[in-house]
Design a protein around this nucleic acid. Structure first.
Lengths: 325, 325
DNA sequence: TTGTAGGCGTTATCAA
DNA sequence: TTGATAACGCCTACAA
């Protein structure tokens, strides 16, 4: 495999000249340029990015760390990241850390060994190791972004959708459909997050209407006695903060012969293909997952290039109306 | 950042001894081992994988190249790959080459610049550039696997599901449900592939029954006049070779008040979450996508380690019975 | 405008 | 069992 030296020799210049010609905009003489070009073509030169990384002490590799890639929520974000990175000639490592033997400490070790240029976290940090993980990342001072939800930690660059707005949009939409007694169904959402939605509902309802909150236990698809609880509370509009659970709810309602829309409007959170294909097609609040990915990649690139970046990016959710509201 | 040299100095040994201790099973004296261990701990040594790669002329990075990651078919395969690679301490690059500015030639250039240890292709190579792309990959002699379908090219390691078997299982299943006039709906499947399914149908039906073949035009979800064509042909069982289209077919049938199962059984190909959540839940032939990923990763690792590998792995499909047949 | 020389952090080949 | 030395391919002062 031809190296820079080979090219230099073949073109009768020094390696340094070739390197300059390839990597900077410092001009070289027309004739030397031509000779170099020809040498590159003739020898089939392929730059060695690894050697370059060693010398420059930086790679063009960004890692995204997520629980599982075979989940449309994560893969849509990842797709946005991938597209943005590749258009800037950065490569994307994907690490799944679902239930594997890898803990976050191992992952960080791996990142450092591999000279990762930046890390994008999606949807982790939910439990106890939260503080410690964040701490060690910040101490390392590598470009990093948390792309998911607003976490209560300053100093950590964040990209997340405006959940208060999401709640407000959702409630307003349900109200506009003539629904007045609303419920929120969520899947063990940690408290600060759930509160955002409730706040959104308040803003939409002028404080008049407090939604009934129903929680889905770990490992279940719906709250226990979901349908009957809804009926007992005379609920006519439900905002389900989890796309899959929204689908299961429509199935349960169907089974109980409750008419979706007329008797009960179902609004879902998240606008993946699943909402589109379910029956009925689900109306939803779109959290802009792909855009979330694009923005987090841009924030990582900004940090890598040592630009001043806004430490927090908030995305505007969107209402998508289909056949369930 | 502490380097190998620093560790060596701190432990009063040569860099080479430290390297040997860390990377091989060549024994070192107990006392030196202890000193090295302590130095590593005290200085917080992080190995530099990039330098190692340069020296050894190989990385532990494998790339998967696919059209889009936000698609459950590809992401399930990718998840299997990810899991397998990470348990062998390999890293995974993901490249999307959907409609972007990157062609396969660029991708290969990138792979070589980055010293990729192996490449897994999923679901590309469908059109004209087919031969050329394959040719340049093979000439490079890098470990490579094509994980998707049986392509008619020898010398390219392949992992794919047994489509004849898939066709046979599908037809047998429909027959077992009392269906006798069958159709296959496919989305512009190139001819050798479609023939596998037809062959499977023949094997299942003792050559008695030829399925009606219906094709979905580019950019559509269903064949034109799908439902009426099915009715005209008195079809009572359809095997849809595309999960999404199968779902759209059930929607179309519902709209025409045709009872799924009783009037028309619908069998889908591929067993992602979408089949599970659609209404009715779709019976399907599971092509074992995650397993496909696991196997292709294993094949790549085998090649990287210069083991003799079976050049072709064929997976057994499975019938999953739900509520649409 | 171009060349020389040294080093990025590691491992391989010797020799001790 | 260990160490000295020389690469791996590239970039970058500094000098010419």
């Amino acid at each position: 495999m031809a190296t820079l030296k080979d090219i230099a020799k073949h073109a009768n210049v020094s390696a340094c000249t070739v390197s300059r010609y390839l990597n900077s905009n410092i001009v070289v003489k027309k004739t030397t340029e031509a000779r170099i070009q020809q040498a590159i073509k003739e020898l089939g030169y392929i730059p060695n990015v690894v050697a370059k990384a060693l010398k420059r002490n930086e790679t063009s590799n960004v890692a995204v760390i997520l629980p599982k890639i075979n989940n449309l929520y994560y893969s849509e974000i990842t797709s946005g990241i991938s597209q943005t990175l590749s258009s800037h000639h950065y490569n994307l490592f994907v690490y799944e850390v679902d239930n594997q033997n890898m803990n976050e400490e191992d992952i960080l070790q791996l990142m450092r060994e591999n000279m990762i240029a930046g890390i994008i976290f999606i949807g982790l940090f939910s439990d106890k190791s939260f503080q410690e993980s964040i701490q060690s990342v910040l101490e390392w001072e590598i470009p990093v972004v948390y792309a998911n939800r607003c976490i209560p930690y300053k100093g950590f660059p964040l990209v997340y959708p405006d959940l208060v707005k999401a709640g407000k949009l959702g409630a307003e939409h349900l109200f506009s459909k003539g629904k007045s007694k609303l419920a929120i169904v969520h899947k063990h959402l940690p408290n600060p997050l759930l509160d955002y939605f409730i706040e959104g509902f308040r803003q939409a309802g002028d404080g008049a209407c407090e939604p009934v909150i129903m929680v889905i236990e770990e490992g279940r698809d719906l709250p226990d006695n979901c349908v009957s609880t809804l009926l007992e509370n005379k609920i006519d509009g439900v905002f389900v903060l989890n796309e899959l659970s929204a689908i299961y709810l429509t199935k349960a309602l169907n089974k109980s012969d409750i008419r979706i829309v007329q008797d009960m409007a179902v609004l879902s959170l998240g606008n993946s293909l699943m909402s589109e294909i379910s029956t009925p097609e689900l109306s939803c609040v779109d959290l802009q997952n792909r855009e979330l990915g694009v923005r987090s990649a841009e924030m990582i690139l900004g940090q890598i290039r040592k630009q001043e970046i806004e430490p927090v990016t908030v995305l505007e959710p969107l209402i998508i109306e289909r056949n369930s509201t």
